[in-house]
Design a protein around this nucleic acid. Sequence first.
DNA 1: TAAGATTGAGGATTCAATCTTT
DNA 2: AAAGATTGAATCCTCAATCTTA
Lengths: 146, 146
Amino acid sequence: VHEDPQRWPTGRLLSAAARKVERRWDAYLEQWSLTHASMPVLAILARQDHSQRELAAGLDVTEQTVSRMVVRLEQTGYLHRRPHPEDRRRHVVTITDAGRAVLADITNPEVVERFATGGMTPAEIETLRTGLLAVLADRAGPQAGP
Amino acid sequence: VHEDPQRWPTGRLLSAAARKVERRWDAYLEQWSLTHASMPVLAILARQDHSQRELAAGLDVTEQTVSRMVVRLEQTGYLHRRPHPEDRRRHVVTITDAGRAVLADITNPEVVERFATGGMTPAEIETLRTGLLAVLADRAGPQAGP
DNA sequence: TAAGATTGAGGATTCAATCTTT
DNA sequence: AAAGATTGAATCCTCAATCTTA
């Protein structure tokens, strides 16, 4: 039943490859109650505090997704939210010591990289990254049509 | 707040690029009540009938995911399920005329490709596809560890 | 009215548990 | 027991609606 990926459209290749790496990564991060999606939240907060709206922009997801992620990350103890001193609509989201600690455990670049680029050569990896950056760089947002 | 993707680990690049393309693709497929995930089901069935377990193997998702997708695709009228004549545990999943019709509307390779590789050059596209195929080809399934 | 955030509804995905048939 | 399929619970993600504050 298995088709030949060589003939798949690029979008399907992209989704399949991403899911595969996410599954591996999630299985590893589970021991810290983290996921491939929640880890980048801590990575962003490690550099600076942010409002949830800012986090959404940095992660390129909706504010609704951020809302749900930060609730869980706060329950787990990896971040803390307090009201903004001047604008009571905002939450100031801050990473906790526990969050920094887990990030330090996980952020070994070699380990992280291995999950995505397991048996690949440096040339293959460079090739892949270049292609992915080209997809992300496409700011045109084209809507095709027959 | 926006970080430099150039410095992201490859796994994060992969997820971000996949989500971006899926969003575009989903917005387009919505008019047929399809999604980036359900379209490949029809593509597989267009060639041959299958059990749900076989579909799961072909799509590289769990049987549970297939179970939910085929329920919806059957409600929409794009496929049909009947009991297997010799093994009553199985469902034989068949594409309907409506399913074939929608597939014909959508399967223009140029249109499909444009969603993923919008403003990219042929060289960039080839580069990306090679990298993605390398990720998918990695049958080792390595679990890294510090 | 805008901005910031939350909740509701629904699809995609997973693991775990269950049910029927082999 | 194993195979095929379903349902439950959870996270990720979206759009739509709502609530509070500016």
